[in-house]
Nucleic acid binder design. Structure first.
Lengths: 229, 229
DNA sequence: ATCAACCTTCGCCGTCCACCGAAACGTTCC
DNA sequence: GGAACGTTTCGGTGGACGGCGAAGGTTGAT
């Protein structure tokens, strides 16, 4: 596959790591989070303009991936390969000590975001679906495999509405509090709707929080989805 | 143990990799060989003075180790950790395509070097003893464990003379043809002497070649030592 | 003792690049 | 529509460093 690395290619990777500011940014992202440019600038201890230049280089070097969302630009490691490199060089790593946005606990746990599920629950669901191969990232966005739909039905979602999910397009959406991906787009909206219909979740009387029912939490557990803590 | 790597430390490693000339040198050493400065300069495509400066930086950065031998200065990777880093970044690597010194086949296979065994056989023996934990590298040089002496006796060496080996100091000696370590110093001399006495090896009528007997090759095989090819 | 081989140190030049502040651009909120 | 915010682009300055050739030191050969 990848032919033996040339000295030039190895040097290019080295050069990207060679600046403390860039190294700090990469280490801040090693836990798989996606973070906006300003936050990475603070983590690296440099000005915004300097950070922007570094991020551009890391992006063009293929070490980072960019996701534009409103006026934020979220950066994350480009792939598992990159994460593996960094972990080989910097093995022991405590999970990110920074949950910067202060928010209501219920809101952090689960909320709606453009009518789809976000927060810890949404992030955990997305990660679990990806992990089991039920969800795939294509050039066209996120796609749910039929096997994934079957698993959802087995966990208790309505069969008829769930059957339509594999035809819908999902959009990876960076979570405001968790800095990780969850499922948005038409797929995310429909999936969340099915969960509301099944009574796994209900809207809080006011605000954007979504309240999982005890039964809902059990159903999520069947899918391997657990809330932290 | 090693506390989580700081951005500065990661950047330092990156900076050492960041120059194509240094990267080429490291890649040339990834197979575990030790090579003189001039050869590395040619491999990197730079002048001798430039190469010297690069090697100095790699040495001070802890990525390389130096072994002075006569008018040659042999550089090799500082440890398994460094090799692991490089392999993580540059996975597929063909074994070094360069056996530069042209020499008689018998001489390459086994010869005496300051009265100890060198050549492919000496290198293979040293590697095997290290691999099995029979030989240890201490700050004082190479030391044979009693268990190693027992293994040698089991393979057929004289018990009385072998028993004295763990008290002798060995010196790592870079092989002229193989560019790898073999056992020199008093330990190497005594070990080779025991093998000559046991008839595993005999001196060629002229020249420095050592000729292993058929029985000797079988005995080496008992120790896990095989010749390539 | 002299010479050649190997390697390092020194001095010089040119290039690359990290950093910041100011300004421009795009998005969101009021 | 305008203000506030997040981010990138531009311009300028200073330091770090890679490259080479020449000189110097050490080792081994004649």
């Amino acid at each position: 596959m990848a032919t033996s690395l040339t000295p030039h290619q190895l040097a290019e990777i080295g050069a990207l790591l060679a600046e403390p500011a860039r190294a700090a940014m990469l280490l801040a992202l090693i836990d798989g989070t996606a973070r906006p440019a300003g936050e990475l600038a603070r983590a690296a201890g440099v000005g915004a303009s300097t950070a922007s230049a570094h991020l551009k280089r890391l992006l063009e070097g293929g070490l980072l991936a960019l996701q534009v969302q409103g006026r934020h630009r979220y950066y994350r490691l480009a792939g598992d390969e990159v994460a593996a490199w960094l972990e080989a060089l910097a093995p022991p790593r405590k999970p990110a000590a920074v949950p910067p946005p202060t928010a209501d606990a219920a809101l952090r746990r689960a909320r709606s975001c453009y009518r789809h599920l976000a927060g810890q629950l949404g992030v955990a669901l997305c990660a679990q679906l990806l992990d089991r191969g039920h969800l795939a990232t294509t050039s066209d966005g996120l796609v749910l495999h039929p096997a994934g739909a079957e698993a959802l039905v087995a966990a208790g979602l309505d069969a008829a509405s769930t059957a339509r999910l594999p035809g819908l397009r999902g959009r990876g959406c960076v979570d405001w509090t968790e800095r990780r991906l969850h499922v948005g787009g038409p797929l995310g909206v429909a999936l969340t709707g099915a969960m509301l219909d099944a009574g796994w979740l209900r809207h809080a009387p006011q605000g954007r929080a979504l309240l999982p029912s005890a039964e809902g939490l059990r159903r999520f557990g069947l899918l391997g989805v657990r809330l932290p803590g």
